[in-house]
């Protein structure tokens, strides 16, 4: 047996970092703002109601804090939106998200168990849907790509199915 010690050089491998990531349509950002706004509605009304019984600087404190949190949430959505994207290659699909804590998750097609395209009622108003891809690696590695055009999602799903069948 010949003793080998081959160095594994980066240039020989397809580099994921150099791939162009496909962004979400802009209305996905608006969708997120809307959903976030709807969620904040409840604590906001609660705080407003609470404020009736408070006085002076406590009022400013609570409402101020709430507004700061909401502003941060919205800013986070905006920054996060510019970072999100997916990359489709011949043999795998990658999704990147997050800006304070970010992650890039890649699923090889030959490991995909099943796929799901779902559309909630609000998503429907925006003509967006979510592509979910399930693996055997537990729910943390299951990919969920929201904010996709309907046709895009279907095409992706069909493409992935075909590839999954080939690379089974």
């Amino acid at each position: 047996m010949t003793w080998e010690n081959k160095q594994i050089v980066g240039d020989m491998l397809p580099a994921l970092e150099e791939v162009n990531f496909q962004k979400h349509p802009v209305r996905y950002k608006r969708y997120r703002y809307l959903v976030s706004g709807m969620v904040w509605f409840i604590p906001l009304t609660a705080v407003v109601i609470l404020n009736i019984s408070l006085e002076g600087y406590w009022r400013f404190l609570t409402i101020g804090l709430m507004l700061i949190l909401i502003a941060f949430n919205f800013a986070s959505i905006r920054i996060g939106f510019s970072r999100r994207g997916y990359a489709l290659r011949e043999r795998d699909l990658t999704y990147r998200k997050g800006w304070i804590f970010f992650s890039t998750t890649t699923l090889p097609f030959n490991r995909i168990q099943h796929t799901e395209v779902s559309q909630g009622p609000i998503e429907k108003k925006f003509d967006l849907c979510t592509l979910k891809i399930f693996t055997a690696g537990g729910s943390t590695s299951d990919l969920s790509i929201p904010g996709l055009e309907e046709e895009e999602a279907q095409q992706l799903r069909d493409f992935i199915s075909k590839k999954a069948a080939i690379y089974a």
Binding site: V117, Q119, P121, K124, R157, A165
Partner: peptide, 15 residues
């Protein structure tokens, strides 16, 4: 399936 959230699930038979 689905009423408000419409789901379309696909499983390859060999999976």
């Amino acid at each position: 399936k689905g009423v408000f959230v419409k789901d379309r699930l696909v499983v390859e038979v060999d999976r």
